[in-house]
Amino acid sequence: MKKRSIIGLTMGGLMLIAALCTKAVTPTLRLSDTRPKIILGTAIPTKFGDWQEDASQVAAVVNPTTVAELNKIYAETLSRTYVNRQGNRIMLSIAYGTDQRDNLSVHFPEGCYGGQGFAVGQTSQVVLPTVAGGIATSRTVATLNSRVEPITYWVVVGDKAVPNSWEVKKVKLAYALQGMIPDATLMRVSSIGEDIEQGYQLQQSFIDQLLQSMPPDLRGHFSGTSH
């Protein structure tokens, strides 16, 4: 009986410690509330460098999920197709969420494309050199029938660019320990073509020119290199 009491007290103590720790790291302040509001439609230019928006091609951009789900997770989304003077096209999809608690986390392209019938290849991580500095990105290829779509993406959680969901969790925890709920921006750039390496090179040039066109504060926000 005495042994059971000790075990019971020990378990009770551990549960209390766990509860206190959970309360201690429960964030209460949204990082987005401490900063100027992000409006994607005005923050992302329709024309920059060698690129301009091709409004007739917006339907080519794969939507990550249903409109209802988008509205629940993200404060804002933006989908555009850009074309350069050579006729090359790049699809840009951005999703911005002000509240990155677990039930409102960003959706990664692998799951979004897979859910719409695409076959999604292996994901690799690449540090992308840009005018803003090196960005930790992920790359994958999605295919559906004859459509071959190389994809480059990254997520900016608070001030830091991360390439995958595991890194997102680590950054979120770091903010939670400060009592803060970070915002997050999912940046996805893709193109259609069977020459995958050429597609990635085109995407890198596009991303660099896009960031060059931005003022320093927005460049830091979308690149995740201001930390």
Results as ranks from 00 to 15, higher is better:
2 K>A: 11
11 M>K: 12
13 G>R: 00
15 M>T: 07
19 A>L: 10
19 A>Q: 10
21 C>L: 11
26 T>A: 06
31 L>T: 13
45 P>F: 03
46 T>L: 14
47 K>V: 14
50 D>K: 12
51 W>M: 00
52 Q>M: 15
52 Q>A: 09
54 D>T: 06
60 A>H: 13
60 A>D: 13
64 P>F: 08
64 P>Y: 07
76 E>W: 06
79 S>M: 15
82 Y>C: 02
83 V>S: 08
83 V>Y: 05
91 M>K: 06
91 M>N: 15
93 S>V: 05
94 I>T: 02
96 Y>S: 04
97 G>T: 07
100 Q>T: 05
100 Q>A: 04
102 D>E: 13
106 V>C: 08
110 E>T: 11
110 E>H: 11
111 G>M: 11
113 Y>A: 03
115 G>R: 04
119 A>V: 15
129 P>V: 02
130 T>L: 01
134 G>H: 09
136 A>D: 07
137 T>Y: 05
137 T>R: 04
139 R>Y: 03
148 V>N: 07
148 V>T: 10
155 V>A: 04
161 A>D: 03
166 W>P: 15
168 V>Q: 10
168 V>L: 15
169 K>I: 14
173 L>H: 08
176 A>L: 07
183 D>I: 02
186 L>H: 00
188 R>D: 01
208 D>L: 01
208 D>R: 02
213 S>W: 03
218 L>H: 07
224 G>W: 05
225 T>H: 04
227 H>M: 12
